[in-house]
Design a protein around this nucleic acid. Structure first.
Length: 885
RNA sequence: GGGCGCUUGGCUCAGCUGGUCAGAGCGGCUGGUUUACACCCAGUAGGUCGGCGGUUCAAAUCCGUCAGCGCCCA
């Protein structure tokens, strides 16, 4: 073989893009459909097309990539389907901002031109996001990329809307919805974020129409409200029916301040007598609870707001056109001047905000389309109860259950232009409503051609909840749908568990009759080192691409996986990624070492290889690592998987195996050199395969230089545990060997014996020492690793030697002249004291009759063994101390 | 108000079904240019696993309770 010279330093920039291109063009991301095998499928949680991938996406996609690469290497047909969603509100906002910069307005250019403009923007952003995914190394099948506004997916949306309508699960109605004045659209309950804010509770006088009476001498009542401007829309005042204080008032009328309206005082048990004065103003058009009260009492409603949250013509002229906060000021000032403002009380209350633009939400009465959720939720609940979908970690099941059990109808119309237009047509002549799979040309009722389509579009989620099957071709019965659906898993962070998980399961159950995925893995959020969420406003975000530039994609992925434990949040700063980078560097250099020493060596066929003890040990370690990594990945324990791989490679392969192999590679026996080099290459090959899912780029790059490589690593087979390689006895022998080596190294280090000082070593075995044969056969290796000048076994203690107590073995080192005896005695004494303390603990345990009668036999046996070992060691230490004194 | 999570060495965290689990990375300290790697090697110090109580022969690991921090839902 020829030596291969790897560049001295690991520099991911020099190969990551090239390697990704290779994977992509060679088609490694595309599944090799095999009807006999069950595929592994993940659909990507589609990012917003106009968004930018942040560290949370990097985590989410890294985890998916690890799973995908692992299953692919297991020989499973594997599909990871990428795509983006059209993000109605967000994208429309982006385009409107852009237009405004150019001095144009949406309304001015018209619907068609606006949508055209938006498509342009969406396409640009989509390319940007896809590039980000590539830089992160996502092994997605680009040939199956989807967008929620694609023709096929739009067909799915229409099919679903019409079907729901036919099943009476979608309806139009006039209800209070969450209105974002800034976005100018209704939102679903889940798009509203509640935050505690300082505010005020104003106490306002409402005068009785009757004026002072014997039973109510003041002639006025006190109402408390945090939104005084809404009194302009009051249609009643209410008290609890059992509230004795106000019984006399029920049925009376009050003058609504600042208006010329007269409203009744009613009794309703919704009112909490303990809160405020026990009297509540009722504003059906602007408060969800009041809305219900209004319905119960048939109060009618006064909508005081325009869609842009300015006050409407329903209020007295002077307030019209004012913004809410402006109106609040004016109302308060006017109440004050009329002597109707009693007092102001500072409070903290929860205020809803738009999840997109953070504007305060106004409850707003309007006509919208809704999905009836209860029947859908019941099926989704059943899917979970039947075990058709399983959560990792399990604790999220409660959240899922709770949300589904308390579900409310879903407002799906959005007053936007960008999105799926609601497929409903109305007839201007007869008022008919038409919902059909094809656009009607004339009214199906009266035949009039005077029909028009609903102006609104659907919530983006109305397409996203179909994602796991619409992307595979549904409602068409495609080959992909048949083969890949239901998918294997969904990977997402817990902050959107409801959006994602619950809605998608509902849709899957309703339209495909099965859960769209079998497993749901919920990971944590990325936070900064102070535990704060990363956000633009805090400026504490870390751009994943900057990490890729600085440390490489592998460092990013490995670090994230290594830190991903359970569903815990991950606290990171830029330096955290050094961890992954250092590991990649270690892989690079270990490989570099092996590849630089191939010159003149012969790669031997497997049949000619005879393994030595060390080989059997590392094969055993690799075997175990393969098993543990697999088990960890299959139960979604990324940190365990990454740590197992890390520890195998660094602690076992590099620190011990490669060092040990130098005994052979530096020998004068040419065949032994060939043999050792061949095994090293084979072990490196297997190690790269083990590591590939976590650090795909560096492993693939190195693999391409292995003389024993076969094809591409991404499609190579993952190491699997085999019984032949299992060697627990060898493992135990090796533990003993390592102990001896470490004993000598520790002594050398603690007493600062210079490296060049020759250390003759003599080993004495206890009678029951189990590893005598192994150690005897490997003294050359011990000599190399411990840096001993010679190793003898069972020789009489050389003069000037000191003894080190091992487990069943004594290491006698001839270095007396080199070290400070009193310091050594001190050290040994300390060690002895520790041992004694441990012994008394064990003795106490073993003399406890309760322990002896209750504990299982094997535990008692183990404790006895521990005691014997410890006692023997203590005795040795005592003896050494005596000898030295 | 309801639900959930966290509190382990200086820092960030692992420790599943109770008995070699008291661990890792970073940081600290000591020593190291034997040509794979100073993004390294060898060695080493640091924790009564938040407090209290309980279950058990045995608890960081189970139960209760208190304290602090955080999240979600209303």
């Amino acid at each position: 073989m020829k030596s291969v010279e790897l560049p001295k330093a690991y520099d991911p920039k020099t190969f990551e893009r090239r390697v990704y291109e290779m994977w992509k063009t060679e088609g490694h991301f595309q599944p090799k459909v095999d009807k006999r095998k069950r595929p592994f499928t993940i659909v990507i949680p589609p990012p917003n097309v106009t968004g930018v991938l942040h560290m949370g996406h990097a985590l989410n996609n890294s985890l998916q990539d690890i799973q995908i690469r692992y299953r692919r290497m297991k020989g499973i047909p594997t599909l990871w389907l990428p795509g983006t969603d059209h993000a109605g509100i967000a994208t429309q906002n982006v385009v409107e901002r852009k237009l405004r910069k150019e001095g144009r307005e949406r309304t001015q250019i018209g619907r068609e031109a606006f949508i055209e403009e938006t498509w342009k923007v969406a396409k640009e952003h989509r390319a940007f996001i896809n590039n980000q995914l590539e830089r992160i190394g996502a092994s997605v099948d680009w040939s199956r990329e989807r967008f929620t506004l694609d023709e096929g997916l739009s067909k799915a949306v229409r099919e679903v809307f019409v079907t729901l309508y036919e099943r009476n699960l979608v309806y139009r109605g006039e209800y209070l919805v969450n209105w974002c004045p800034s976005c100018g659209t209704a939102l679903s309950d889940d798009e509203v974020e509640h935050e505690d804010e300082p505010g005020s509770l104003w106490h306002i006088w409402y005068e009785l129409v009757d004026g002072p009476t014997p039973e109510w001498p003041s002639g006025r009542i006190e109402i408390a409200t945090s939104r005084p401007e809404t009194l302009l829309g009051d249609t009643a005042v209410a008290a609890h029916p059992n509230d004795q204080r106000y019984t006399a008032l029920i049925g009376k009328m009050v003058r609504l301040p600042l208006t010329d309206r007269i409203i009744p005082i009613i009794a309703d048990s919704y009112v909490d007598p303990e809160f405020g004065t026990g009297l509540v103003k009722i504003t059906p058009a602007h408060d969800p609870n009041d809305f219900l009260v209004g319905q119960r009492h048939k109060l009618g409603s006064t909508n005081i707001l325009n869609p842009d949250a300015t006050l409407s013509s329903a209020v007295p002229e002077k307030y019209r056109g004012m913004k809410v906060l402006e109106a609040r000021k004016a109302v308060l000032a006017d109440l004050e001047s009329q002597g109707l403002l009693k007092s102001e009380e500072k409070i903290v209350h929860a205020v809803g905000h738009c999840y997109r633009c953070h504007t305060a939400i106004e409850p707003y009465l309007s006509r919208q389309w809704f999905v009836r959720m209860k029947p859908l939720a019941e099926k989704a609940l059943k899917a979970w109860q039947d075990g058709d979908v399983v959560f990792f970690p399990k604790k999220w099941e409660h959240t899922y259950e709770h949300w589904l059990e308390n579900i409310r109808d879903w407002c799906i119309s959005r007053q936007l232009w960008w999105g799926h237009r609601i497929p409903v047509f109305y007839c201007k002549d007869c008022g008919a409503t038409m919902v059909s799979r094809e656009d009607p040309v004339v009214c199906t009722q009266c035949g009039s051609s005077n029909i028009y389509q609903d102006e609104d579009v659907l919530d983006t989620w109305f397409s996203s909840w179909l994602w796991p099957f619409s992307t595979l071709g549904w409602p068409k019965d495609t080959a992909d749908l048949r083969y890949f659906y239901p998918t294997s898993a969904l990977v997402t962070a817990y902050d959107i568990i409801f959006f994602w998980v619950a809605r998608m399961i509902m849709a899957g159950m309703e339209f495909t009759g099965q859960s769209p995925f079998k497993e749901v893995y919920i990971h944590g959020l990325i936070r900064d080192k102070q535990g704060r969420k990363m956000s633009k406003s805090l400026g504490n975000g870390i751009d994943p691409l900057e990490i890729v530039d600085e440390y490489g994609s592998d460092a990013l992925k490995f670090t994230l996986a290594y830190n991903c434990a359970g569903g815990q949040d991950i606290l990171l700063d830029r330096d955290s990624f050094k961890m992954g980078s250092k590991f990649a560097n270690k892989i690079w250099n270990a490989s570099r070492y092996i590849l630089m020493n191939l010159e003149g060596r012969t790669y031997l066929p497997e049949s000619e290889i005879v393994y030595n003890d060390t080989d059997r040990w590392i094969l055993h370690r690799l075997n175990l690592a393969a098993k543990n990594v697999s088990q960890a990945l299959e139960s979604w324990r990324f940190n365990d998987a990454a740590q197992t791989a890390y520890s195998y490679f660094w602690d076992d392969f590099c620190d011990w195996y490669i060092e040990a192999s130098k005994l052979s590679t530096k020998s004068s026996d040419e065949h032994e050199k060939d043999r050792a080099t061949t095994v090293l290459l084979n072990m490196l090959d297997a190690s790269l395969r083990l590591l590939h899912p976590f650090l795909p780029f560096v492993t693939e790059e190195i693999y391409s230089m292995l003389p024993n490589a076969n094809g591409k690593l991404i499609s190579a087979r993952y190491p699997e545990w085999t019984a032949e390689r299992d060697a627990p006895e060898t493992e135990a022998h090796f533990v003993a060997l390592k102990e001896i080596v470490t004993l000598v190294r520790t002594l050398r280090s603690e007493f600062q014996i210079p490296p060049e000082a020759a250390i003759p070593l003599n080993l004495v075995f206890d009678a029951n020492f189990l590893h005598a044969k192994f150690i005897t056969e490997n003294i050359a290796l011990i000599s190399l690793l411990a840096g001993a000048s010679s190793v003898s076994i069972g020789a009489p203690p050389p003069s000037g030697s000191i003894s080190l107590a091992g487990n069943g073995v004594t290491a006698q080192v001839q270095v007396r002249g080199l070290l400070d005896i009193s310091k050594l005695i001190e050290r040994l004494s300390k060690e002895k004291e520790k041992e004694k303390a441990y012994i008394s603990k064990l003795e106490a345990k073993l003399s406890n009759p309760a322990f002896l009668s209750s504990a299982p036999a094997d535990i008692i046996e183990k404790e006895k063994e521990k005691l014997a070992a410890s006692a023997s060691k203590a005795a040795k230490l005592e003896m050494y101390i005596r000898e030295l004194s």
